[in-house]
Computed example of a mutant assay.
Amino acid sequence: MTELSEVLAGGDDPAAPVGVVRVLARHGFGVVEPGQLLAARGTLMGEIVTGGDLLRGALDTSATELARTALSAPGTQEAHVAEDDAVAAGLACAGGATLLAHPLPGDAAAALARGFTQGVPAALVSTVDGTAALVLVGADLAERHGTLGSTDLDTAAAEHLAGLLRRGATVTDRAELAGTDVLVDLWVPVPSLLVVGAGALGEALAAQAAVLGWGCRTASTVAETTAAVEAFTDADVLVLLDHDPAFDEALLAGLRHGRGFLGALGSRRTQAARRERLLAAGITEAQLAGIHGPVGLDLGARTPAETAVSVVAEVLAVRSGRDPGALSAGGGQIGA
């Protein structure tokens, strides 16, 4: 099966519509990851390619055929997975689902693909009958493609998604907005941490990433680090522990690339020296604001484990657009 983003992006016929299949309702299966999506697209050679999966592949056979029909018209289908098949697929138990299939215009599908590949939030909202769909992409979901049929409904969907986005997690939600029943899928990329440098703090950062469900990898050379940063998406995070000025090359690459979170440890003196070197290399004061250094929130951390908490806390705050403060001092909704 072809990668989901490749199918959505369009390949040799980007203007062609895509048929998508999503989980409208379900019972059983145990805990299921949100954001289930399978897509199908016709090629210029007359073939149909598919990507993605539903419920760990347990429903792919029926869903693939449904996705083919969705290329031309929306529809729903009931599906059931027996106990043995469910367990074999990695699900907790048997269950049933109502699958919603509907066409998605080529430009909207391509926008969704860009969101996935660039590591930025992306959302797909449709009426529950599949007759209208809206795709929103970007850090604040400002880029829109398609419509749910009215300005009021599109606005209500955007406001609903803004609330979901503040939770910082992928979610599938069915809601009534502006008097219309809709199915909402929001994909929020999971951060991936790149730690450059060894020692107790590096180990603590890896442990903290594991607790949060983030990816984590390490690098030790300038070339390896620079190559990784040049390939960053907005979901990627650099934490530079090594103070060697040679690693300025990686920071320069990150600032010019413009994606991801760039964090660097070091004393005030180390930060000042790094700042002067980067300015001398042609980086502007405005660009320097893209480096979080010394990285981490002022939590009074003393140990490597506590410092790791302060680092990931700043990453979370930046990703959510929050100005960190005590919950007791704020007036907003807790958990929003």
Rank of each mutant, 00 (worst) to 15 (best):
R167N: 05
R167G: 15
G168M: 09
G168T: 09
G168P: 14
G168W: 01
A169P: 10
A169T: 15
A169V: 15
T170W: 04
V171G: 05
T172G: 15
T172W: 00
R174V: 14
R174D: 15
R174A: 15
R174I: 10
E176I: 14
L177T: 10
L177P: 13
A178S: 13
T180G: 08
T180Y: 03
T180N: 08
V182P: 10
L183G: 07
V184A: 04
V184N: 04
D185T: 15
W187E: 13
W187C: 10
W187D: 13
V188C: 14
V190P: 05
P191V: 05
S192N: 14
L193I: 05
L193W: 02
A198P: 05
G199R: 13
A200S: 13
L201V: 11
E203D: 14
E203G: 07
A204M: 02
A204L: 02
L205F: 02
L205I: 05
Q208N: 07
V211P: 02
L212D: 07
L212S: 11
L212M: 15
G213V: 08
W214D: 12
G215V: 06
G215M: 07
C216Q: 08
S220D: 12
A223R: 13
E224V: 00
T225D: 00
A227L: 11
A228C: 10
A228F: 00
A231R: 15
A231V: 04
A231P: 06
T233R: 13
T233N: 04
T233K: 06
D234W: 08
A235E: 04
A235C: 03
A235H: 06
V237P: 03
D244Y: 02
A246H: 01
A246L: 02
F247C: 01
D248V: 03
A250L: 04
A250N: 06
L251W: 01
A253N: 06
G254P: 06
G254E: 01
H257E: 05
H257G: 07
R259I: 05
G260Q: 06
L262K: 08
G263V: 04
G263F: 01
G263N: 04
L265I: 07
L265K: 05
L265F: 03
L265E: 13
G266S: 09
G266W: 01
G266V: 07
R269D: 12
T270K: 10
Q271W: 03
Q271E: 14
R275K: 11
E276M: 09
L278M: 12
L278T: 09
L279Q: 12
A280I: 05
A281E: 14
G282E: 07
G282V: 09
T284S: 15
E285T: 15
A286S: 13
Q287F: 02
A289C: 11
G290N: 07
H292C: 09
H292T: 04
P294H: 08
V295M: 07
G296P: 09
G296T: 04
L297N: 06
D298L: 11
L299N: 09
G300F: 00
G300P: 07
A301G: 14
A301E: 08
R302W: 00
E306G: 15
T307A: 11
A308N: 06
A308L: 04
